[in-house]
Structure formats: C-alpha cells, structure tokens
C-alpha cells in the first residue's frame, strides 16, 4: 500500500515538475518559434504553434540592419570585464570578512546589501551627469565600471557565504603542516574556494549580460550591448514581433549556451553548503 502511494506521488510530482518547467520555459520557446515566422504569421489569431512556414528572413533582416557581432562583443567585454574587476575587489573583501570577522562585519554586509534596495532610477540623474561631464557616455569603460559597482554587493555576499563554508580547521592543519601564509593560500584555500568563485563568476556574468537599465540609459550605439540591441527593435517603427524575436533569440543564445555547459557548476555553487 505504502508503495502504491509513493509511486502515485512520484508520478504526480514528475508531471507537476515538468508542467511548471514547461510553463517557465514557454516564453523563451515562443520567442524562438516566433523568430522563424513571417511578420504576418507572428500576429495571427489563433496563434500558430509549430505548423507554419518556417523562414529565416527575420535573421537576415536583423543582420542587415544592425551589427550583431559588435553588440555581442560589447556584451562580452562588459559582462566578463565587470565580473573580473568585481571579483578582484570582492575576493579579498569577502576573505577578510569570512576569516577574520570583526564586530562590524555583519553591519558592513547588510549595508552593502542595502544599496541594492535603492531603485536604480533614483541615482540615474547624478550618474548620467557624471558620465556626461567625464565623457563616459556610450563608452565601454564607463558601463563596465557601473555594472561592477552595481553587482559588487552580490559578488561579495556570495563569496562570503562560500568562504564561510571552508572549515577553519583545514587551514589550521595546513599551518601545522608547515605551510606559510602564501602556501596556505595557494595550495589549500584557493583550490577549496574555486568552486564558489566559479559559480559566483558565472552567475554574475549572466546578471551583467541581461542588465538593461544602465545599458539603455548610458549607451547609444558604439558601446551598446545586446540588451540595447533588442530594445532597438521594440519601438521606432511600430512593433515587428518576428524581428524582435529574432533579435532576442540572438541576444540570449550565447548566454544560454554558457548556462547549459555550466549548469552543473551553477547548481553545485548555488546549493553549496545546503546539502552536506
């Protein structure tokens, strides 16, 4: 009897899981499908799911109208750059907070997080003015710096959580085994911290890749990343659903591929410490 119930539960939960998964994934799937429709089929009612005339014309049109490769390379520079600079700052910070905390460590962490509670638009004007006066508008350096600062609290928090999981006794063991501080860091701490650093890096690249608010407001064309490239298809000449979908598909494809290959690392990183 117990067995029958548990099988039924398993079936129920499996179906439920797949259904929820499909619902979450559906918008992405719909975008990809729409990108292969003609503008006419894209707005047809009732919507056509799979049986329409597949076409590549939107991709051709998008390629002709804008320089996809430039936007993509901008996106790569900004997301990877801001992540690496962020890590450079955050690793020592999180390190110090995890391994030699003071009475104020918790306050500092909370204070950093509190900056994320402020709506970004609240500081748009001052930042815009600074960018204008320092001629940083529509430049990669400025946008990279802003994204570094925006995501820094999250990077520090994530790293802090990972570093806290490293048992102090292992570091003490290294000291007893005759390791100097430098050797302790190179041979023991870093290898144990790498999984945490790697998943922080991946997550932050994804966050930066998808960032739109600052990209849209601080770039025009030269430094525009893929998020700005999508936005360019949304308004000026009315709505072209199919072309917009093609642009979106092109924009998310690289990060989707990265996410697919890194999923094990990501899941491991995000549940690090949750399952002992």
């Amino acid at each position: 009897m117990a067995r029958a119930i548990s099988t039924r539960r398993k079936v129920t939960f499996t179906i439920l899981g797949w259904t929820i998964g499909f619902l979450i994934f559906f918008p992405v799937l719909w975008t990809v499908l729409t990108s292969f429709k003609t503008e006419g089929t894209a707005i047809a009612t009732p919507p056509q799911f799979l049986f329409f005339d597949w076409t590549m014309e939107n991709y051709v049109a998008v390629q002709n109208r804008s320089n996809y490769m430039r936007h993509m390379s901008n996106s790569i520079v900004i997301s990877v750059g801001s992540t690496l600079i962020g890590l450079l700052v955050a690793i020592p910070a999180a390190w110090a907070m995890a391994f030699s905390p003071t009475k104020r460590t918790k306050d500092v962490l909370l204070w950093m997080l509190s900056t994320k509670m402020l709506p970004a638009v609240g500081v748009l004007v001052p930042i815009y003015l600074i960018f204008r006066d320092w001629s940083l508008l529509d430049g990669l350096a400025g946008l990279t710096a802003v994204l570094t600062l925006i995501n820094l609290p999250i990077i520090v928090w994530m790293l802090y959580t990972y570093f806290r999981e490293i048992p102090g006794e292992i570091l003490e063991a290294a000291r007893m085994d005759g390791a100097s501080l430098a050797k302790e860091i190179v041979y023991v701490l870093t290898p144990m911290a790498v999984p945490g650093i790697a998943s922080t890096m991946l997550l932050n690249i994804i966050l930066a890749w998808n960032e739109a608010f600052w990209s849209l407001n601080l770039t025009a064309s030269r430094a525009a990343p893929l998020t700005a490239f999508i936005a360019a298809y949304s308004s000026p000449e009315g709505l072209f659903w199919a072309k917009l979908s093609a642009a979106s598909t092109l924009a998310i494809a690289p990060i989707l591929v990265l996410g697919w290959f890194a999923q094990r690392q990501l899941v491991r990183g995000l549940t690090f410490g949750a399952v002992k």
Partner: peptide
Amino acid sequence: TPPARRRLAMVFQSYALYPH
C-alpha cells in the same frame, strides 16, 4: 613562534583532511 615553525604535528577531531 607561529605554528608552522614549532615542528609539531596535530591530528584534529574533524580529521581536517584536504578535500581536494
């Protein structure tokens, strides 16, 4: 003197092996 230079060896309750 720091622990690394006292020439003592320690076995911890948690074993404290290097997991990697």
